[in-house]
Nucleic acid binder design. Structure first.
Lengths: 210, 210, 210, 210
DNA sequence: AATGAATGAGATTTCATTCAT
DNA sequence: TATGAATGAAATCTCATTCAT
C-alpha cells in the first residue's frame, strides 16, 4: 500500500514532480496539449532533463494529468455522499462540477490527447469508481422518491460531463451561466408528471469513456 | 454582390477551394487543428502549393472553416423560424444542434484555434446574426405563452452551444444521449410553476463569443 | 544584321520584353537577384507565363540584364571619344561612371549572379570592346602628354569599375562623394614628378571579368 | 564586464558558436547571404538545431557576422595609431584595408543583408568608434603637415570602404591592383599645390552607415 | 540527480516552373 | 498568345528526445 513508487521519492524530487504536473495542467489548458516540453519545464522551474526523468515522454505526462483530473472528480463524488439526502448529494455533485471544470477541460483538447487518456487503465479504474458512486446515488434518490425513475447513472454522468466543460460564455459569467443551466436541468429532473424520456435508462456500461 | 473575390475564381480553382475546406473541416475534427497541412492537401486531392495559394497560412484556413461553421448555424436558425409556432421553432433549433455538432466541434480544439476564430470579424458578424434570430424566437415564444419568461436569448444560445458539443458518450449512442438531454432541458424550459432561475435573463450582449 | 531575333518581335511583344527587363533591373537592385519571378512579372504588368515565354529561366533574365549594363558602359565609352582631347575623354568616362552606377550594381549582388554574367559570351564581347576603347584613350592620352606613362588601360578599367560601385555613403551624398573621390584620383593620375606605381602597367588581358 | 551572455557559455558551446560564425562568414562570401542554413551548419560541423539555438534566425546570424567585421576594422584602426607618424598610420590603415576585404565584403551582398547590418545598434556603435579613431588620425596628420587640409575623416572612411571592397580583377592580381590603386590615391592625398576638392570636408556625421 | 546543449526528423512555407484555360 | 492556377522540390524553422557536463 505504501509501496507506491511515488511515495518513495525524496522530498525535493517529490516537489519537482508536483511542480511539473501543475505546470503541465496549466499549460495544457492555456496553450493546448502540444506546448513545447521545454516551456512546461521552464514554468515548473526545472530543466527539460528533469522533466524527462520523471515522465519518459509527453504521453506519460498527459496520462498523469488525466489521472489527476479523474481522481479529483472521484473525490468530489465521494464527498457528496455525505449529504443528508441522495437528492442533495446529486445536486451537490452536479453543482460542484463547475468547480472541477478547469481541472478537466484538458480532456477536450485534441483528439490525440483524449485518446491517450481514454486508453490509460488507471484512468479507466477511476472512471468506473466514479460511475459506481453515481449509481448508488441514483438508486437511493429514486428510492427516496426525489429522482424521476426514467434516468440512470449514465444520464447523470453525461450531465456531469456536460457541466464540466467550459461554458460558452465570457469568463466572468461562467458561474452565473453554469448556475442557470444547472437549475434548468434540475427542474427537469425532479419527479413530477410529464412525458417520459425517450429510450431506456442509460447504464454505466453504456458509456465508454466517450 | 458578385464582387465577392471568391466568386471570381475559375471553375476548377473554385472546386479546389471547396475540396480544401471540406478536407480541412474533416481533419481538424479527426486529428485536431494541428494536422499537417500536407495531409489536408492530400485529402483534398491537391498539392500543398495549391492549398497555400488559397489560404496563406494555417490561421487563414482555420478562420475559413470557422466561418463556414457559423454560417451553417445561422442557416439552421433561419430555417427554424418557418415552424408554425415559436416554441416549435426553438425545439427544432435545439434539436438540430446535434446535427450541426460535427461541423462545429472544431471550435473546441486548442485554445489558439478558438482564439483565431473569435477574432475574425466575419465570424463575429455571423454570430450577431444568429443571436438576432434567436432573440426574435425567444420574444415570440414568451408572447405566445410557451416559454418561461425568465430565460433570454443568451440562455438559449448557451444551450445551443452545449448541445452542439460532442456528447461524452460512444458514437452509436450520441443521438439517443442528445435526445435525452434535450428532453430533460425542454421539460425545464416549458412554462409552468416552479422556482425562478437565479439572476436576470441573459441578453445576447452578455455573451462575447465565449 | 537586321536578322537579330529581337528585331522580329511584334510591337506589343517588344514592349513586354522591355518592361520585363526594366522591372527585373529595378528589382534586382532593390531586392537582390533572388526576387520571386512572380514579383518581377507583376511589376512589369504581365503574367509569369509571359515572362517565361521571353526568358526561359532566371539565368536568362540575369544574363539579359547584365548585357544591357555592359552595353551602356560601352556606349558611354564610345561617346567619350568625341571629346577634344584624350585626357578630357578619360575624365568624362570616369566621371560618367557614377551615372552608370545604378545600371551596373546588379553585378555586385550574389556571387552566383555574377558568375552567370561573367560566363555569358555576349557580355565578354562587350567587355572586350570596352577595353579596346579605353586602350585607345590611354595610348592617346600618354602620347599627348597628359597621362602618366605608368598606368595602362587595365588600371583605368579598374578605376571605372570602382567608381561604378555604390558609394558607401547616404543616397543624397552619392554625387558629392563620388566627385571628391574622382578628383583625388585625378590629382594622382596627372603627369608630374612623383614615385612610380609599383609593378608594371596592367594590360586588358590581365583582367578577367573579375 | 564578464556578465556578457556569451561569456557564460560552456566551453564546448563556445567552440560551436565560434565555428558557426566562421563557417557563416566564409559561406556568405562564397555563396551569398542566402546559403542554406543547413550548409552553414554542416560546414561548422554541427546540426542545424545547434545553429538555430545560437542564432534564432538568419538575420541574427547576419548581424553577428556583421558585428565581427566591423570589430575587425576597429581593431585594425586602433592598431594603426601605434605608427610613429599620423601619415604612416593612415597609410597603414588604408593599406591593411585590403587584408580586411575578405572579412568585410559580406556587406555588399544583397540589399536585405546590408539593411539588417545597418540597423543593428551594436554595429552602429562600432562604426562610430571607427570614425572616432579616423578623426583623430586625420586631425593629427593635418597638424603634422602631411595630409591635405581639404579632406575630412569621412573622406578617409569612404576610401577605406572602397579599398575594402573586392577588386574587380582576378584573384591572383588582387594585391597588385589594390596596391596600385592605393598609391594613386596616396599621390593625390599628399599635401602639395593643386586644385582643392569640390565641396567641404566630409565629417563623420555626414555618413550614415551608407 | 539536474542541467541545458546538441541532434535531426518533420512541419511549415515559398517559389521556380509547367500547363490548363 | 497571355494568364494565372497547380505542382512539388527545397528551404526555413521547431521541438521531442538524448546525452555530455
Amino acid at each position: 500500500m505504501t509501496a507506491d513508487p511515488e511515495a518513495r521519492l525524496r522530498a525535493d524530487a517529490r516537489r519537482n514532480r508536483d511542480q511539473i504536473l501543475a505546470a503541465a495542467k496549466a499549460m495544457f489548458v492555456e496553450a493546448g496539449p502540444d506546448v513545447p516540453m521545454e516551456e512546461i519545464a521552464r514554468r515548473a522551474g526545472v530543466g527539460v532533463g528533469t522533466l524527462y526523468r520523471r515522465f519518459p515522454d509527453r504521453d506519460a505526462l498527459i496520462r498523469a494529468v488525466g489521472q489527476g483530473n479523474f481522481a479529483e472528480v472521484l473525490a468530489e463524488a465521494e464527498a457528496a455522499t455525505e449529504e443528508p439526502t441522495a437528492w442533495e448529494a446529486l445536486v451537490r455533485l452536479l453543482s460542484r462540477s463547475r468547480s472541477l471544470r478547469l481541472s478537466v477541460q484538458l480532456a477536450l483538447l485534441s483528439p490525440q490527447a483524449w485518446a491517450i487518456i481514454k486508453a490509460d487503465p488507471e484512468t479507466q479504474r477511476l472512471r468506473d469508481s466514479i460511475l459506481d458512486v453515481i449509481s448508488g446515488l441514483v438508486t437511493a434518490a429514486q428510492e427516496e422518491g426525489s429522482l424521476r425513475r426514467d434516468v440512470g447513472a449514465g444520464d447523470i454522468a453525461v450531465l456531469v460531463a456536460l457541466l464540466i466543460k467550459p461554458m460558452p460564455a465570457p469568463e466572468h459569467l461562467t458561474d452565473l451561466v453554469t448556475d442557470r443551466v444547472l437549475n434548468l436541468i434540475l427542474d427537469g429532473l425532479r419527479l413530477r408528471p410529464g412525458p417520459p424520456l425517450p429510450g431506456a435508462p442509460l447504464s454505466p456500461d453504456d458509456l465508454l469513456l466517450s
